[in-house]
């Protein structure tokens, strides 16, 4: 009996090409979310909320109800849905410009209210859709189209660690950070996403998984160089791990 595994597209992901650039790990994250939706059997009552950014077109790639938010406002839309229809499973899928720049107010207050939806926060340290501008998570010295000489912390401050920022709130929540740049990390990211959705399914708490992701095109790197730079530079500043769980919060 030959040993081996099957592998196929999850049902919650449509069988169509995506617009993402070659090597962009948005595609991996989409698949993991879809796999978790399938596993939990909730596709029929899931509503995803797309951001403004590269992932706005996520609504073409998922096989469940979707809404498209204004830039940064997905957590408010998710709040609106969960409050009037708590039976629906809701997730927002947001980039770093969307969540940590214009949408910072919304994500902080949704997390602090303990809204019971799940946020997939894709941190690739740059604005992708608009062509590579500096994001709140852009690294010191990292060149972008609006930090052409490298991000200068003396001028625009240090990159924001969103997971830790949100974890500092007193309301119980599940907050983790992972990455998807290599299979071993992908397995952990999948587990974190599964846990996040499970907390929502149990109506337990707000959940957010920050996923450090690549942007080969706007970083000006090949997909493989982008993986190495992420591992060497981004993960050093954005350490993966389980930052906060509702159990830990409640023990205090």
């Amino acid at each position: 009996m030959a040993k081996g595994k099957t592998f196929k597209r999850p049902e919650a992901l449509r069988d169509c090409p995506t617009h993402y650039c070659p090597g962009c790990t948005h595609g991996v994250i989409h698949r993991l979310v879809a796999e978790v939706i399938d596993e939990l059997g909730v596709r029929g009552r899931t509503v995803g909320i797309a951001p403004v950014g590269c992932a706005v077109l996520a609504y073409n790639y998922f096989n469940c109800d979707f809404q498209e938010a204004a830039h940064g406002r997905a957590p408010a839309m998710a709040t609106g849905i969960k409050r009037v229809r708590p039976d629906l499973m809701v997730f927002t899928y947001q980039g770093d410009g969307d969540l940590a720049s214009i949408g910072m107010g919304e994500i902080v207050h949704a997390a602090n209210r303990g809204e019971k939806f799940t946020t997939i926060f894709v941190n690739n340290a740059i604005y992708g859709m608009t062509g590579g501008q500096m994001a709140p998570t852009t690294m010191p010295g990292q060149r972008t189209s609006t930090s052409p000489f490298g991000r200068d912390a003396a001028q625009v401050g240090m990159p924001i660690r969103v997971a830790e920022l949100l974890a500092s709130l007193q309301t119980p929540a599940y907050i983790a950070r992972q990455t998807v740049i290599k299979p071993k990390y992908i397995a952990r990211a999948r587990k974190a996403i599964h846990k996040a959705f499970s907390y929502q399914l149990a109506n337990r708490c707000f959940s957010l998984v920050e996923i450090v992701s690549t942007c080969p095109t706007n970083w000006g790197m090949t997909p493989l160089d982008a993986v190495e730079w992420t591992e060497k530079t981004l993960l050093a500043y954005y350490p993966p791990g389980e930052i906060k769980t509702p159990e830990a919060a409640e023990e205090r």
């Binding site: 081996g4 595994k5 592998f7 196929k8 597209r9 090597g23 790990t25 595609g27 698949r31 397995a187």
Partner: peptide, 17 residues
């Protein structure tokens, strides 16, 4: 060896086993 590492890594779900 059909370990599916390639499928897991592929951002475009272009690989099937």
């Amino acid at each position: 060896i059909f370990c599916a590492m390639c499928g897991v890594m592929c951002p475009d779900v272009a690989i099937r086993i």
